[in-house]
């Protein structure tokens, strides 16, 4: 597994954790109408720890001759960025459309809801980027004979 793949796996784990935390926060604020401070702090610490582990994992070199990225990695990353960019466009359009039907054309939403939506769009874009990288490696980069 090369650095790009490792980074994509880390990105996937961090993104899914963040999405789960967002879902938990959403349930707290809308359904339970009660904040669980300790649980939120635990979740934030876990997320921070995962991000730190991600950075350490990427920076750590396995061998002195190890190549960080090559031309194929860059091609895969470019395609993943395009997929991620398209997903952001689709998500923004969908969000506008859904909000139009939920709160109406002149309706308002709370600031925390807008913040959560923006973070969710960013996280889904990162998720699409990581999945696109892993799918491309899966299609053409299986480990073969040494």
């Amino acid at each position: 597994m090369n650095k790009t793949q490792k980074s994509a796996w880390c990105g996937l784990v961090v993104t899914l954790t963040f999405l789960l935390l967002c879902l938990f926060l959403f349930i707290e604020l809308t359904i339970l109408k009660k904040m669980f401070f300790f649980m939120n702090l635990l979740g934030a610490t876990l997320l921070f720890g995962l991000v730190v582990a991600w950075v350490i994992f990427i920076c750590k070199k396995q061998s002195p001759t190890e190549v960080k990225t090559d031309e194929r990695d860059k091609l895969i990353q470019t395609r993943a960025i395009v997929a991620s960019f398209i997903s952001v466009g689709i998500l923004i359009a969908l969000t506008c459309l859904i909000l139009r039907f939920i709160v109406g054309i002149s309706g308002t939403i709370a600031v925390w809801e807008l913040t959560l939506i923006n973070f969710l769009i960013f996280e889904v874009a990162l998720l699409v980027y990581s999945v696109a990288i892993l799918v491309q490696y899966g299609l053409g980069g299986r480990d073969g004979e040494k």
Binding site: E71, R72, G140
Partner: peptide, 15 residues
Amino acid sequence: GVTRQTIIAIEAGKY
């Protein structure tokens, strides 16, 4: 100057 995965993909005719 490439990764092992790239050599694997080249040998397999996928890249």
